[in-house]
Nucleic acid binder design. Structure first.
Lengths: 232, 232
DNA sequence: CGAGCACTTGACCGTAGTCAAAGTCGGTGG
DNA sequence: CCACCGACTTTGACTACGGTCAAGTGCTCG
């Protein structure tokens, strides 16, 4: 489990809080109030931030590193729900619904997170209406992404599923994409095997639609051909 | 497009508002304030509540009837995102993110909805902190459902996908389920064809795990066998 | 520089999609 | 109240796509 600093200065909390989109609209003194109720948490690469079944009424904000959020199905498959990079947050479901976690959160790199307890956040919201709007906006955004993922996953064929994803992360324009996760995680996210992902990606490369650069970058060469392959 | 009543009494709005879970924690006088800014809307069976591309900064709450929310993919497939029954709401994404609708909403029965504009809701939230907590809770809940749907859809085989769905709507217990949508919509929701759904359902019936009653009901006979088939 | 892990490639097989057609339920109108 | 019509659902045969298993290649990080 992660280790909590006890004697940190307020500065680290401020750094964390000020980086987060949901807090960005707040005034300086409000930021300080927020920072005062956060607690930093460290998680080593491969370590768990939380697991299924835990009753953690805490909001986690990723400050440094990367956290992978996934469901574990009974047959051992990991369904990647999303990958959190600095500025992203998790735990909002547990925060607002009184339920136990149904997913695992695991650091894929050495990571640094800030946490806010449910009680503290509730108090903050009462004081700062803009904060609740920001939170609502962030949740709505996440919901949109999740529904989009569901739409993608419902596509029966792997090629358009991949194309749809690439289209989305590229913003429908030609250009270089930094993949937010490893190819095997991406495969799970898209509901296919790493083998299928590899084959379909290769097909797109062969057709001159995309180009791979190293392991974590893909360059979209022909956005319109990509759109023709994608079904959305 | 739907027709708006202009000269309704406040009573109808109150009926609508008081039925909605997100408003249920409010005091009577607060409910009245909410009711004052809502506008009822009627939608005939088969009629559109809104379509892709519309810039509607409005929250829709279903009061009577049923509304189907779906994406249309380029190959003509309809991906059902969800089906809204009385008390459910839509439009929150457009409300908080300044974006155009990416989905269609269509009434599957003659329906009655209440609407609240973005401006009005923002004002309400400022006045009533509990309301924002309720909204956040509702959104978090929806997010959880969407992530769950994504997990289900990522399952490669159709049988466990169906079993997982049945498990979920039955609350993991034996008993009768009222399907919230037609089988062909359910097939789309689960990312398979109506033919596959029919075959897999039949298999569950043959194995004595479930029983079909008419077209819209399924009775779970053996919850533990169902759990054995489901992968979640 | 080396070891291990991520990724790729290949061959085979099973499952679900497709197309076509029959069957059945539900609602509407006489 | 019953009969009909239309949409939903089911069934069947065929095909192909992707999953599985196995082995090979190449980054990347220590």
């Amino acid at each position: 489990m992660a280790h909590t600093h006890q004697h940190e200065s307020i500065e680290q909390e401020l750094e964390c809080v000020s980086q987060v989109p949901i807090f960005q609209r707040l005034a300086a003194d409000q930021l300080t109030s927020v920072a005062q109720v956060t607690r930093p948490v460290l998680a080593k690469k491969g370590g768990a931030v939380f697991s299924t079944g835990e009753v953690s009424q805490t909001l986690y904000i990723v400050n440094v590193g990367q956290v992978r959020l996934y469901h574990l199905t009974e047959d051992g498959r990991e369904q990647v729900l999303r990958v959190l990079n600095p500025g992203d947050f998790i735990g909002e479901i547990a925060l607002f619904t009184d339920e136990i976690h149904t997913s695992y959160a695991e650091a894929t790199k050495d990571s640094e997170l800030c946490t806010i307890s449910r009680a503290a956040l509730t108090a903050l919201i009462k004081e700062m209406p803009p904060l609740s709007m920001a939170l609502l906006g962030a949740l709505a955004d996440r919901l949109k992404t999740a529904e989009r993922q569901a739409t993608l996953l419902a596509i029966p064929d792997a090629l358009p599923r991949l194309a749809g994803y690439l289209q989305e992360v590229s913003g429908h324009r030609a250009g270089t994409i930094d993949l937010p996760m490893s190819k095997q995680d991406l495969a799970a996210y898209l509901g296919m095997t790493p083998e299928s992902l590899s084959r379909k990606l290769r097909q797109l490369v062969k057709d001159g639609i995309v180009e791979t650069i190293g392991r974590r970058q893909i360059k979209v060469l022909d956005a319109s051909s990509l759109a023709a392959v994608a079904p959305v």
